[in-house]
Design a protein around this nucleic acid. Structure first.
Lengths: 244, 244
DNA sequence: AACGAATTTGCGGGAACCCGCAACGGGAGA
DNA sequence: TCTCCCGTTGCGGGTTCCCGCAAATTCGTT
């Protein structure tokens, strides 16, 4: 038991400029914080959080080696009550999906864009770390909404097959992996094509697009997919493959 | 003719934290610089450079709306003697290719990673803006080398078809667009597959991968491709399509 | 229990893809 | 000039993809 409410914060951020900026912001916004830890990648972020039993984390999302999502997952697995503020450059749906997939029941978390004003950042820091409130950037909210919308949004099932598609699997392998018939895979693909609005080309002439590749392309352009999501899917597939 | 060597510098960078950091660095490293202009996207960067006839630019690469490469291209088109220091987060081959494709004969330019030390940055500023020397980060050099290597590197022709592939075109459309026969397209594709090391799968069993999509996937993972490159290719294709 | 809607699966076929084989053509060097 | 090498083109085939049609199954609702 610490005598006073001595708060400690961990900053996980690879960019030194941003790291310094965050430390400054924490010191200004949270005078009750007496110690600021820093880590410059997900790997060591996990380690420091574990060693010092830290409960307040500011986490960059895109980092080399080990993503912010990865790090947050293991941190939350070890102590689900940790408060994490995600601090990211982009509002890609791929990231938003990644985060909301791992946040545990009742945990306080936040999702702020780096373009947010300093005031907003300071407010978010106090809300999350002192009052355990969730703070989600408005833009992120929009993405969350859209991704859950029935009509334009993409189902989890469809997202799953999109990943399989994106790493280049054949229909047959997808069928084997997901325990479906070949035809079902093709069905899901057609749904996906519909949702993404990919067609062979405007008119009824000859095909302009290869739907398979085109789907990946527009998913990328719409930021449904990004390299990080790809890497993760690749890794999962590798693991599945090893145990036959 | 300015009476003294009154240098002026333009900083084009969307992230306010980095922008402030850069301004600071310029003021320290270049005391002979008396005016620092700032722009927060490619669009206005071009405008400011044009209006004030600036010859020294620091340019972020990934920016919303209009890329650093785009902005640099038009700036250099208007005044090829401009010195530009590119300042980027990543050493993706896609970016490196994009830059070295547009740098005009004899222009001074630099390519620094944001992870470089402040000393390195200051040194680069002086080298480029005062002595018109090119300064390329070592990591970037490595990428440049590799991309020009005969064996592992990818030809411009192959890169071109990779882009067509990535935006989802069919063989036939690629053939029409590039004025080749269908078979030639398929040939190039096979070369590409070879270079990227994509196969149907390890053993001689059934195919695990769809080569087409798989190629895009590994190109992404290897950072040969990124979303920006995709966008650009998409745009070019659209233009080609309009004039039949 | 019964009904309707959404998924799953099979069948079949046309189109696109992947690719080995072979001939042709143009540029580099002996 | 002759030859060698590389890129292009055609042909033919096996495979995979894309998808309409229709029966079967699942699931939620009344």
């Amino acid at each position: 038991m610490t005598a006073e409410a001595a708060m400690r914060v961990l900053i996980v951020e690879d960019d030194p400029v941003h790291r310094a900026f965050l430390r400054e912001a924490v010191e200004v916004a949270l005078p009750e914080c007496d110690t600021v830890f820093e880590a410059e990648d997900g790997q060591s972020g996990e380690r420091v959080a574990r060693e010092h039993r830290l409960e307040n984390v500011i986490m960059d999302l895109q980092m080399p080696q080990r993503t912010g999502v990865d790090a947050a997952r293991t941190i939350w697995r070890e102590r689900p009550a940790t408060s994490i503020l995600f601090w990211s450059n982009y509002a890609d749906e791929a990231y938003v999906r990644g985060v909301s997939r791992i946040v545990p029941e009742g945990a306080a978390y936040g999702y702020l864009l780096k373009s947010a004003s300093e005031d907003r950042l300071r407010l978010a820091l106090r809300s999350i770390f002192l009052e355990n409130q969730c703070v989600i950037d408005k833009e992120i909210r929009g993405v969350q909404q859209k991704s859950q919308d029935r009509s334009s949004g993409i189902t989890d099932a469809e997202y799953e097959i999109l990943l399989d598609l994106a790493i280049g699997l054949t229909d047959r392998v997808i069928a084997a992996r997901r325990h479906m018939s070949l035809r079902s895979v093709q069905n899901r693909l057609q749904h996906l094509y519909g949702k993404l609005g990919v067609t062979h080309g405007e008119t009824g002439e000859e095909a302009v697009f290869n739907l398979r590749t085109r789907a990946v392309s527009v998913a990328m352009l719409r930021k449904l997919l990004n390299r990080t999501a790809l890497e993760q899917a690749e890794e999962e597939f590798r693991r599945w493959r090893e145990r036959s």
